[in-house]
Design a binder for these strands. Structure first.
Length: 262
DNA sequence: CGCGTTACGGTTGAG
DNA sequence: CACTCAACCGTAACG
């Protein structure tokens, strides 16, 4: 049912997470061989691969949000994990992981990928920096650095650099940076457990999030409820076919689907 | 057969 | 600005 589309190639040219709706699965891919061990995780154009179930995934990258959502929704309706796995063509290990995470955290989102933990600006040091700044708002970063050394909180190898201290101050006190771009935006999310909280402006879900459709874990209130609302959003998105699948309202989706297919 | 777990090959991004 | 490396990813396979 998913394969009778005119779409014949899955184009994956970016290493960003892509929306790869199941209806866009490659109809010429020999899925009957994919599960026989003759080919595993068969590479398709670019970074997209096809798993044993015929599902498309990008190695190393999280499943798109709409599929994660669907997994949780189906589970909530009482659908068994093995059925979800087959229906959405997602490995059962992955279904299991996403459901477990949802149970534990209430979030459907992937974890925070990449980056590294602060090496010098530890929470304790950050607290001190914050305190120094509160005590003396006019204090310079290099003065803070000196004080951290003098009071023995850090030694020369562990004291944060002046730029590290500046970064902490920017974060804590929302001080505008000279380049004045993003930077301070994600700070509201200081619980920091949501994977999409940063660097999300270059994928389709990031765009959605910024258009207030899917910013939180429970986005349905903000989702377009009418065809007109949905079209307005669609007009700002280049990959219209893909973005469809992020929408929660199946009625609207079907309407837009028909509209685009004509 | 269903599913929890984990090795593996991969990506990411703060430091 | 290129690099490092520890975080996370989903799949496949085992038990």
């Amino acid at each position: 049912m998913h394969l009778n589309t005119a779409q014949s190639k899955i184009k994956v040219t970016s290493n960003r997470p892509l929306e790869l709706p199941t209806r866009m699965l490659n109809p010429v891919f020999p899925y009957h061989l994919a599960g026989l061990g003759l080919m595993t995780s068969f590479p398709i154009e670019g970074q997209g691969r096809v798993n044993q179930l015929g599902g498309v995934f990008i190695n190393g990258r999280p499943l798109p949000n709409h599929i994660r959502l669907k997994i949780v929704e189906l589970a909530a309706q009482g659908v068994r994990p093995c059925v979800i796995s087959r229906q959405l063509r997602v490995s059962h290990g992955c279904v299991s992981k996403i459901l477990q995470r949802y149970q534990e955290t209430g979030s459907i989102r992937p974890g925070v990928i990449g980056g590294s933990k602060p090496r010098v600006a530890t929470p304790e040091v950050e607290r001190k920096i914050e305190q120094y700044k509160k005590d003396n708002p006019g204090i310079f970063s290099w003065e803070i650095r000196d004080r951290l050394l003098k009071e023995g909180l850090c030694d020369r190898s562990t004291v944060p650099s002046v730029s590290s201290i500046s970064r902490v101050l920017r974060a804590k006190f929302n001080i505008k940076d000279s380049d004045g771009d993003s930077g301070s935006e994600g700070l509201e999310d200081s619980d920091g457990e949501h994977g999409e909280a940063r660097g999300n402006s270059h994928n389709i879900e990031g765009i959605l999030g910024e258009s207030k459709l899917d910013k939180r874990d429970e986005p349905e209130d903000a989702a377009p409820q009418t065809l007109v609302e949905a079209k307005l959003v669609l007009e700002r998105i280049t990959d219209k076919r893909s973005i469809l699948y992020a929408y929660r309202s199946s009625v609207v989706v079907v309407e837009i689907q028909n509209h685009l297919d004509n």
